[in-house]
Design a binder for these strands. Structure first.
Lengths: 180, 180
DNA sequence: AATGCTATTAACATTTGTGTCAATAGGTCT
DNA sequence: AGACCTATTGACACAAATGTTAATAGCATT
């Protein structure tokens, strides 16, 4: 529950909003209590990072393991990454610790392998490199979409509905890359 | 010169490295001097943000206005976004102030319009929506690539060279989307 | 040389964030 | 009830970041 409140502060106030005094105040508790639970302010931030990362992995897994058709999987992926918490997590990671990344270790590594297997199966017999490139394109654009999609949309004069349809368009296009 | 040092601290120490005492020490000057010039610590950070944004826009403009062939433009775009300073800028923006974004205002808006015109010209007569979608895909994946490309590469077991070739692959693929 | 301006500095003051501690309250187990 | 454990709190202590001020130095203009 505390971490939920902390996550909201990350969204609304950025990294500087992640201090124990403010979070404790939002939660209506004494800041000493926070220190007692997490050991230190840094410990609290690490716990939040872990928590948010697990949430992202879980959400991605849910999409992947659903029985949705291939094209809507991309739509869901983009929708997921546009959720404020998830893209802020990645932005935070990119800023704070360059050496560790939530998409490179532990359960997420397994998840990506899972995605890779799925796509490789679909393009039967073709080079795995192609599958990797396609996934790379899908994931990186989903991340970029989450981080500066709204800004790009604005400067390109795209309508709200057109922006909303972009994920579906990507879902249509990517399979074409397989065929050629 | 001060802002160059501040930018380096952003890369090496993240946002928490952007305090006037440390920056002043790196620069070998008194921290009061920094305050005198920028008015406040926040003013210094705003100046850095503006500075980095202008650098990004300038770099993008240089790529766009070069007479390089269309496919290498994508390669250059990706290379640009993988430069640490640029993707950290976007991550910082995404985290700190949700309402303002460097790709949505001022000179960058003009730049994106310029890109849009160029692509629209190439796909002669087709719907502008297609051009917008393609640009959206290219830019968003370039941003995502900059922010978590290395991590993705790692968890997908991609070799260094394959990751390096990804931009070129995108450069080959995107024109295909125009033809169909 | 005198004036005025700007840059720079050290020292101090304030504010904010973090951490410690002793005291209290509530619960569980014997 | 008594012993024990954990959670919580307020008060204080410490550290770090920011801001203020008076003094000094350098430099251009008159």
């Amino acid at each position: 529950m505390i971490l939920v409140i902390a996550g909201k502060r990350l969204e609304t106030h950025g990294i500087r909003g992640l201090n124990i005094k403010d979070i404790a105040q939002d939660a209506g508790i004494n800041h000493g209590t926070l220190l007692h639970h997490f050991g230190s302010a840094e410990g609290m931030r690490t716990a939040l990072l872990t928590n948010l990362t697990e949430a992202l992995i879980a959400d991605m897994s849910a999409i992947l393991n659903s029985d949705a058709p291939a094209d809507t999987i991309f739509v869901e992926l983009f929708r997921l990454m546009s959720q404020s918490g998830h893209n802020k997590l990645l932005a935070w990671r990119a800023l704070e610790d360059a050496e560790y990344s939530p998409l490179a270790e532990g359960p997420s590594e397994k998840l990506i392998q899972q995605i890779l297997d799925g796509v490789t199966r679909r393009i039967q017999g073709r080079d795995i490199t192609l599958a990797q490139n396609i996934i790379f394109l899908a994931l990186s654009s989903a991340v970029g979409w989450g981080i500066c999609g709204p800004a790009l949309k604005q400067s390109m004069g795209m309508s709200r509905t057109q922006q909303d349809q972009f994920p579906a368009w990507v879902g249509e296009q990517l399979p074409k890359l397989i065929q050629d």
